[in-house]
Structure formats: structure tokens, C-alpha cells
């Protein structure tokens, strides 16, 4: 009987270790730049949650962090406070964070925006925009766009903040 219990416990432990390993390896695989596309970021012209025009072209000359996210996406929600902090920290140096929500309607996004005190423009995404950026079938997806409008990095999955911050700094003009 005791042996049977030990075997069951060992199986549960092994399964737990396997699952943790699977998740952490998936995270490290997804949390680093998965594609660095040195091509012009597709322009878009949308309305933000306040009805104000939001066009990528208006941010040429700034470093743009373009975040595809949704309120129902747990890792996306985890990233938002970091993006708010980055926007505060690097606003003067020319960082602009833009959020593109993949929610089906504005209501939960507006509530989330207020709750998390988001300090950057957010618009609802469209199928056309998602397609222009290579399809948004997994979230979050973060693009870093340089001052010249070229895509400097693409991160699929929850981004590792130190890596992202380093990349952002590298895109600012040298002092």
C-alpha cells in the first residue's frame, strides 16, 4: 500500500516537473525577438478609445512600441503596467507606446484602460491591420519600430522586460 502511494506521488511530481519545464521553455522561446524584420512598419489610421485619430505615420521620428493585446489575455494584462512605466520613463527620449486591442468591443477595453491608468493611446484592432502585421493569432505580440519607421524587433508572447528595455534604448539617438 505504502509503495503504491509512493508511486502515485512520484508520478504526480514527475508530471509537475515536466509541465513546469514545458512552460518555462515555451516562455523563453517566445519571450525573445522571434523575427527582426528590417522593413517599413505597415501604416494604419484608426481612432483611439477617445475618438481621436491614431495614425502610425504621425509618430515618425519616435521609437514606437506597438502592442497587440486583449483584456482577456493574461500575459497581456501582466505586461501593461510595465508598458505604462516604460512610457513614463522614456517619454522625453522619444518613446511612444501604442496599444492595439483585439477585443471584440470597446467596453472592456475602456474599463481596463481606466483601471490600469494607461498613459498611451489604445485603439481597437481590425482584421486588415492584423493581417498587415503578419496575422495576430497569438497574443501578446509586440513590435518595436525605430525612428525611421522600420520594424526593429517583434516579440511573440510575454516579453522579457530587460531585453525590451535594452532594445528600446538602443533605438534612441546616441548622446
Amino acid at each position: 500500500m505504502r509503495r503504491a502511494v509512493l508511486i502515485v506521488v512520484a508520478i504526480i511530481l514527475a508530471a509537475g516537473i515536466y509541465e513546469v519545464g514545458r512552460r518555462s521553455s515555451a516562455h523563453s522561446k517566445l519571450g525573445v525577438p522571434s523575427a527582426v524584420v528590417h522593413s517599413l512598419a505597415p501604416d494604419f489610421s484608426l481612432q483611439d478609445l477617445n475618438g481621436q485619430p491614431l495614425a502610425l505615420a504621425n509618430y515618425r521620428g519616435k521609437v514606437v512600441l506597438l502592442d497587440f493585446w486583449a483584456t482577456w489575455c493574461a500575459p497581456c494584462r501582466d505586461e501593461i503596467p510595465h508598458f505604462v512605466a516604460l512610457q513614463n520613463e522614456y517619454r522625453e527620449q522619444g518613446l511612444q507606446v501604442i496599444g492595439i486591442s483585439m477585443d471584440d468591443g470597446p467596453k472592456p477595453v475602456r474599463e481596463f484602460y481606466q483601471q490600469f491608468k494607461m498613459n498611451y493611446p489604445v485603439a481597437l484592432g481590425t482584421e486588415k491591420l492584423a493581417e498587415a502585421y503578419g496575422g495576430v493569432l497569438e497574443l501578446p505580440i509586440t513590435f518595436l519600430i525605430g525612428r525611421d519607421g522600420q520594424v526593429a524587433a517583434k516579440y511573440v508572447g510575454e516579453v522579457q522586460m530587460p531585453v525590451l528595455e535594452q532594445e528600446i534604448k538602443s533605438l534612441f539617438p546616441a548622446k
Binding site: 486583449a70 482577456w72 496575422g135
Partner: peptide
């Protein structure tokens, strides 16, 4: 699931209902 994801790609023959949440 979410409609915007369904619009980008879905299983042929499947029907969109609406988010279960």
C-alpha cells in the same frame, strides 16, 4: 472565442457563435 481571431483564421465548416465568457 473572440470574433477578431475567428475572422483571421478558423476551422473550415466551423460556425462563429460568440465569446463563451
Amino acid at each position: 472565442g473572440p470574433h477578431l481571431l475567428y475572422m483571421q483564421a478558423h476551422i473550415p465548416g466551423s460556425e462563429y457563435i460568440g465569446a463563451g465568457s
